[in-house]
Amino acid sequence: MLVVAGAATGGAFGVLLAGPILALLVVLLAPFVAKLVLGMLASRRRGAFAEQLDDSLQLLASGLRAGHSLLRAIDAVSADSPAPTSEEFTRVINETRLGRDVGESLDDTAQRMDSDDFRWVAQAIAIHREVGGNLAEVLDQVGHTIRERSQIRGQVKALSAEGRISALVLMVLPFGLGGFLLVASPGYMDKFTQSPLGFMLMGVAALLLITGGLWLRKVVSFKF
C-alpha cells in the first residue's frame, strides 16, 4: 500500500511538472526503487543482528549457567540487548507464550534474519532439547565459531571497500553531473523534458542505472 501510494503521489507530481510521460515513468520506477530501498534496510538490520549475535550468545550462555531455564535466559537477552536482537528475541518469547514451540520460533528468526550463524544456534538448542547435555558449553563453542567467521567477514569487507566506494561514485556521478549542468547551463538539458524521445531516453538511462547498480551490488557482496 505504501508503494502504491508513493507511486500515485509521484505520478501526480510528474503530471504537474512535465506531463503524463514523466508521470508514467515515475509510476513504473516506483516498485523498483521501493524494492531497492527495502532491500537496503533489511540488509542493514540483518547486519546489525549478525554483529550483536556473539554478545547475545554470551548472555544466553551466562543465563543458563546461572540456573535459568532456556526461555528465561532468552527473555533476559531480549531485555539486555539492543535492537534488532531485543526485538527478535522478544518476538520469540511472545510466540512461545501463545503456545508456539520455541524451536519453530527460533527457526523463523533465523529465516527472517537470513543468518546461518543463528541457524546453528537454533539447531544446537533443538538437539539439546532432544538428547540433553550442557547447552551453555555448546553455545560457547558455537559463539567461538561465529567470532572466527565474523573476523573473516570483517577482513573481506575491508578488502572489498574499494569496490563499494567505486560503485557508490559511479551511481552518484550521473546525478552530480546532471545537477552541475542544470546550474551551469540551465537550458542545456531542456530537450529531455520537451519531447517524448527525451523522456524515453531518461527512462532508458534510469533502467540502465538501476541494472548497473544491482550488478555492482552483486559484485561487491559476498555470502558466507
Rank of each mutant, 00 (worst) to 15 (best):
V220G: 00
L25Y: 02
R119W: 09
A158N: 01
A61S: 15
V77D: 08
I93G: 08
T211M: 11
A5Y: 03
L170D: 03
M171F: 15
A61V: 06
D54E: 13
E104A: 07
A12L: 14
V26H: 00
A184E: 11
G14I: 14
V37C: 05
D75C: 02
S195E: 02
P20K: 02
G176E: 01
L41S: 11
A158F: 01
A12T: 14
L201D: 04
R91S: 13
F49S: 07
S221W: 03
A5Q: 08
L70A: 09
I210R: 06
V121G: 06
L24H: 05
L201Y: 11
P20S: 06
A61C: 09
G179C: 12
S78D: 12
I165Q: 08
S150H: 07
Q123H: 05
G103D: 09
V131Y: 03
L36W: 10
L214E: 05
L17Y: 01
G213D: 01
T96R: 03
Q155T: 00
I21R: 11
G178P: 01
S115P: 02
A61Y: 04
K191I: 15
P31N: 11
T193F: 11
L25V: 05
D80S: 15
Q52E: 15
G19V: 10
A30W: 00
G14R: 13
L170F: 12
T90N: 13
I127D: 09
L36R: 06
Q141K: 14
L208P: 04
E137V: 04
T145G: 12
S150R: 12
L197H: 01
K191L: 09
P196L: 01
V27R: 07
R112F: 01
E87P: 01
V121C: 07
S43F: 13
M40P: 06
I146C: 07
V3Y: 11
L177H: 06
R217T: 14
L214T: 00
D116T: 02
L64W: 01
I93W: 08
L177S: 12
D54F: 14
F175G: 11
E104S: 12
Q52D: 15
P82N: 00
M171V: 15
F175D: 09
D190F: 02
V26F: 06
S160H: 08
K157M: 04
F192L: 15
K218I: 00
N94H: 02
S43V: 12
A110H: 15
G203L: 06
L182F: 15
H144M: 09
D80I: 09
L41T: 03
L24V: 09
G203I: 10
A42L: 14
K35C: 03
G143R: 08
P186I: 07
A167D: 04
R129G: 11
V183M: 03
L135S: 06
P20M: 10
P174M: 09
G39A: 13
L16M: 13
V27M: 14
V27T: 10
R44H: 07
G14D: 10
D140Q: 14
S86K: 04
